[in-house]
Every structure is written in C-alpha cells, then in structure tokens.
Design a protein around this nucleic acid. Structure first.
Lengths: 233, 233
DNA sequence: TGAAGTCATTGACCTGGGTCAATGAAACCA
DNA sequence: TGGTTTCATTGACCCAGGTCAATGACTTCA
C-alpha cells in the first residue's frame, strides 16, 4: 500500500463505476496537480473556466470588487469540486486556507472528455447544482439576515462539514481567519468578533485560541440562523 | 405552420443536434406544462428538485427566510432553464411576473433520461454553471456593495437580458415591481425608489410610468456598478 | 523564551439604509 | 370617467453595523 495519489482519489470520488482505460488516460492528461500554500493564490489557467478537485487541505474562492473589497463566495474542503470562472463581472481567485493540494482541469475539456462518460457528467452536474443551491442559500443570508443570524448560520453549516466530536462536545477547528469569515458573511471582522462574544456570553459556544469553537448548544444555535423552518414571530 | 409548442421549443433550445425518437418520447413523458398567472406561485412537485424551462413570460425564484423576509434569488425570461430545489435551508418558490408558460421536469428523472444523451447533459451542465457564476456575482453584490452600486448593476444586467432599442435610446421594460427589485438586491422599496431618483437627477436614466426605464448613459451607469474592471481609488 | 508580528477583541462614534408615515401617481374597473 | 386600489415617491427619524483607534492575546522564529 502506497501514498494516496490525487488523481486516483479524484477518479474514485467523482467518476463512479469503473471508468474505461481510455477515459482514465484522457483525464490524467488533462488534470494538473497544484499545491497551494497557505494564504497564496492558486496559479490556475486564467484563460478558461477551471474545474478544481480539492484533494487535501482547504480553500476559499474569493471575488474582488472595486475598491479592494473582497467577498468570499465559498469555502472548500478535501473531496470538494470547485468551478472557477475565468471571466465574470468580478475577478475570482482560489486561495489556500492552509497548504493544499488540488487537481485542476479546464472545464471545457473535462466536459468534452466526458461525452462518453455519462456518470462523470452526471456527477459534475449534481455537484454544481448542489453548489448553486448553496450559493442561493448564501445569497439569502447576505441579502436578508442580521449579523447574528449570519454567524449562527455559518457555524451551523461548518459543523456539518468539518465538525468533530471531542469528549462528547461538538468541536469546530476553523481553518479560516475572522477576516475570511467576515468576507464570507458580508460583515467586518469587528462585527464577527462581537457576535462571537455575544454567543459566548449566551452560553451557546465556547472558544479556545483563535480557531477552536465548541458548540455547546447546536439546537439553539441553529435556531438563531433564521432559516425557514424556524417559524418565528 | 402552427402554434409553437412548448415541448418542441424546449427540445430545440436545450437538446442540440437531432435527438433520437426514444429520447424525445421519454422527455415528453417527463415534462409537465404549467401556466403560471401573474403573481401566482407555480404548483411544482415539491417532493423532488425540479428543472423548469421557461417557454414564455418571466418568473422570479423567491426564497423565504423566517419572519416573512423574502429574497429574490434570480429572475428568468423566455428560454431560460431554472433549477428549483425541493429542500434547502430556505423554502423556494417560482412565481410568475406575468402570465407565463413553463415546462417542468423532475431533475433526477431528466438526468436519468439523459444518460444516453451527452449533449443534453452537457447543455444542462453548462446552463447550471452559468447560473452558479451569476449567483456568485449576485452574492458579491449583496455582501459588499452599496445601494447605488446594486441598482446600477441590476439595471446594467437587465439591459443585457431584456434591453431594447427605442428611437436610438436604450429602453428597459421591467416586468417586476420595485418590491421585486428590492427583494432581489437586499434593499427596501424606499431605497430603490431613492436610488432611481438620484440616478434620474444625475441624468443617467429617465423613467416613464412604473416600468419603463430609458438608459441615457449606459457606460456611466455600468461605471457605477463597482465591478472589478472599474479600477477606482 | 522572548521579541516581533499578526490577528482578535473591545470601545466610542458615525452613517447608510431601514422604518414609519404621509402624499402622489398609475393601473384597474364599473 | 371617476372612484378604488395598488404601487411609487418623498420626508423625518433611528439603529445595526461600519469605521477608527487602542489594547490584548496567539504564533512564530531566533
């Protein structure tokens, strides 16, 4: 048994069934493995849309508006597939939250190569629809929610993605800074900090160091998130 | 030559090439045509995700958060394909902005039927990625832009989708109300109204009645949108 | 292990856009 | 064609969250 290989793992994770030798070879030729250091921008091909598989680590996809304002559009962890547009209204960059390994494909070629591999196409389609639905949920948060609701919503979502059990409490080890969280929620670091403070004061969470958050009352926290089933008023 | 038929038009628009008889029959069996009256919610199957083709008219996809707050997640016009999730963090509804005809498919069945039709899959994938990229651009606006920038951005985007030439000026006939615009931009109707007023005062636009907007200076308007190429500061 | 640098917290103050309320203009309808 | 309803505009006021500034707590690396 040897080192896990990014390409092999990509094939297992996103190409279900047993792909043909030809497809495997074709995809292997298309994918470029990249490592992204913590805080650095991935040197992706900026000429065409890219589809990036996160093999190990964590990334953020950041949009740049005028005036140096940044919006984190999504966070990604190992196993995730990210679509990075070459040209849109804003300029997008994929940045490492820690040292990260990814596999990058030109979107058009990947889709082209998958003409005979409906399962690959289907998998990519499924994942991009899931991303669309998450992005819409994020838009609701950005457009219509208070700082408290956004932070509660963020913590709840993070629990589901990277939460761990630690001596029978729910623990979160956040790989992103307060600034990243702020840039993701459309808030400032000061507001994030104040919200963390208030959640701490209410006994919903407990924090240790800069990145560890223990969720003491996940149900109450989710109740603060302002989602629809929270039929309040 | 007879009445254009929603299903035929759907096939021409989203299934490139010449689809097999079998596929055509299969898809015909899956699609349900619906008409959505102005202001009414489409009676879609809420049990599974739906993919909806807008044949004629215009719609909005609205998310409902707690406390009666609404966020318009996207507007759609004839020829657009919309993905409507059955279950997400918020509750989504597709609503007619005018009397509208659509063709609705259960997403899973549509994808299942397309296993042998890579061109259909590719088309759906391409459109949903485009929707994802638009949704991200919207998230940037909601998270990081001023009211002025959001309104300018909205008008500029609408010009590209439904703008018409009218006696050598760029005209917009908005099918949505001020409330819809506000719910789309994360602002109130009052703020929308004030922004329209200021743009009018600056000579960038002119309005007639409730729905007609003439864009007098598209370039200056786009310059207000705060996109990245607007390298300011 | 201590000094430097980064990141987080806290406080004081300010402002963009929300809220509430009144008026006015379109669209609709009998 | 006038009366009703709905929608848009405008003004006065307020507050959540931004901004600015100072302090404090992790990390890092020598």
């Amino acid at each position: 048994m040897h080192e896990p290989n990014p390409f092999q793992q990509f094939m297992e994770a996103v190409v279900p069934g047993s792909p043909s030798r030809a497809l495997t070879a074709r995809l292997r030729g298309l994918g470029r493995t990249l490592s992204i250091e913590k805080g650095r921008i991935a040197k992706l091909d900026r000429d065409c849309d890219q589809i990036v598989y996160v093999f190990e680590g964590a990334t953020k996809l950041v949009a740049q508006a005028s005036g140096g304002r940044e919006q984190v559009v999504a966070f990604h962890f190992a196993g995730d597939l990210v679509s990075v547009p070459a040209r849109a209204l804003h300029s997008y960059a994929l940045t490492g939250l820690m040292n990260t390994q990814v596999l990058a494909f030109p979107a058009a070629s990947l889709v082209g190569a998958a003409v005979d591999a409906p399962l690959l196409l289907t998998e990519v389609l499924e994942r991009s629809m899931a991303a669309l639905h998450r992005c819409r949920d994020k838009a609701v948060g950005l457009g219509r929610k208070s700082a408290r609701e956004r932070v509660a919503s963020f913590l709840t979502a993070m629990c589901e993605r990277i939460g761990t059990r630690h001596r029978d409490r729910l623990r979160l080890d956040l790989p992103m800074s307060r600034r990243d969280i702020g840039d993701s929620l459309g808030l400032t670091i000061e507001t994030i900090s104040r919200q963390f403070g208030e959640l701490r004061a209410s006994g919903l969470i407990e924090t240790t160091g800069r990145s560890t958050v223990d969720i003491l009352d996940p149900v109450a926290l989710a109740g603060c998130a302002g989602h629809f089933s929270d039929t309040v008023d």
